[in-house]
């Protein structure tokens, strides 16, 4: 069980590394699909069927939007090579080397603090339901919903869902505004 999830997570990491390094944008987006669909399988293993369904739908819509965006655009990657070839001799590109160095230091620092803070978490598979105890025990009687996730989402935390709907509306208005107005020529 834990081993299967670990293998799927390694597949996700490999897929995301290929996504960021692919030469062609279309293959980058297709390999980004690996990450999302592996996440769907992991959600099913972690006993979260609602999340798996929603993630599947959202993943497909995201892929369609992305492919529609890059369909009529340039698909090449714009990355600088890490080595520059001048008169047959390879030189290290200083700017991209600097970026890599800064990112490496940042990642190692963050990773160190994460590993240091792991003992404060409960180990995988052990969880004390503090707030959700009431939800689990009385959720069915109070909300009348057999699915506890739906009961929490639409009853106990209905205002969160209202805020989510507000964000969706704002995003749609923003997209319409961005795509409608004509830009100034510079």
């Amino acid at each position: 069980m834990e081993a299967i999830i670990a293998v799927l997570l390694i597949l996700m990491i490999a897929g995301s590394i290929y996504t960021l390094h692919a030469r062609d944008l279309l293959s980058a987006i297709v390999s980004y699909g690996i990450v999302g669909f592996a996440l769907v399988i992991i959600f099913l293993f972690l006993k979260a069927p609602d999340l798996a369904i929603v993630q599947l739908v959202v993943e497909i819509i995201t892929l369609i939007i992305m492919i529609a965006v890059i369909r009529n655009s340039s698909k090449e990657d714009l990355q600088e090579r890490t080595t520059v070839k001048v008169e047959g001799v390879h030189y290290i590109n200083l700017r991209s080397a600097l970026y890599l160095l800064v990112t490496g230091i940042l990642c190692i620092g963050l990773f160190y603090y994460f590993v240091k803070s792991i003992p404060g978490l409960e180990p995988f598979g052990v969880h004390t339901t503090r707030m959700a105890t009431t939800y689990i025990e009385q959720g069915a009687e109070l909300t009348g919903s057999a699915n506890l996730v739906t009961g929490i989402l639409f009853d106990f935390r209905g205002y969160d869902t209202l805020g989510e709907a507000t964000i969706l509306l704002t995003a749609v208005i923003g997209i319409l505004t961005i795509l409608r107005i004509k830009g100034k020529k510079v």
Binding site: A48, V54, V58, H127, A132, G139, V149, L153, E164
Partner: peptide, 17 residues
């Protein structure tokens, strides 16, 4: 399993879209 994080993540997924 704890239903509270699942309800939160359901919101986050839709907002992410």
């Amino acid at each position: 399993v704890d239903p509270l994080p699942q309800a939160m993540v359901l919101t986050v997924i839709v907002i992410g879209l």
